[in-house]
């Protein structure tokens, strides 16, 4: 079965546990080599974070468990990369038209 190598998730979480704790717990999961948790919006009680995980074989279910256990709620899955290599999205003509570059 194909392996997930990178996941980018948009998550709403309470301020506690902190993103430090989140990064620690996510990086403890098997098959994960790197974690990036980035806050992009802060509210009075909650914050929106972009969670990027990269590894050899990422288990989406285990990541979801960590998110739920820490009181987070998954808003969207913004990027998934699978397979033997990690590739970024290709720039197409439509992207140029959209950005005007």
């Amino acid at each position: 079965m194909g392996k997930i190598r990178r996941l980018v998730l948009d998550v709403l979480k309470p301020h506690q546990p902190t993103i430090i704790e989140w990064a620690r717990q996510l990086s403890d999961l098997e098959g994960i080599d790197a974690v990036n948790v980035n806050v992009y919006e802060i509210d009075q009680k909650v914050e929106n974070v972009k969670v990027t995980v990269q590894g050899r074989d990422i288990s989406y279910d285990r990541i979801l468990e960590v998110i739920k256990e820490n009181g987070g709620s998954l808003h969207s899955i913004d990027e998934v990369v699978g397979g033997a290599l990690i590739i970024d999205e290709s720039i197409t003509l439509q992207d140029h038209l959209r950005t005007g570059s």
Partner: peptide, 17 residues
Amino acid sequence: DDLESYTLTDLNETKIG
């Protein structure tokens, strides 16, 4: 309960609860 109204999830069985 207040926090749950923000996250829209049941927090009872989480680390926070």
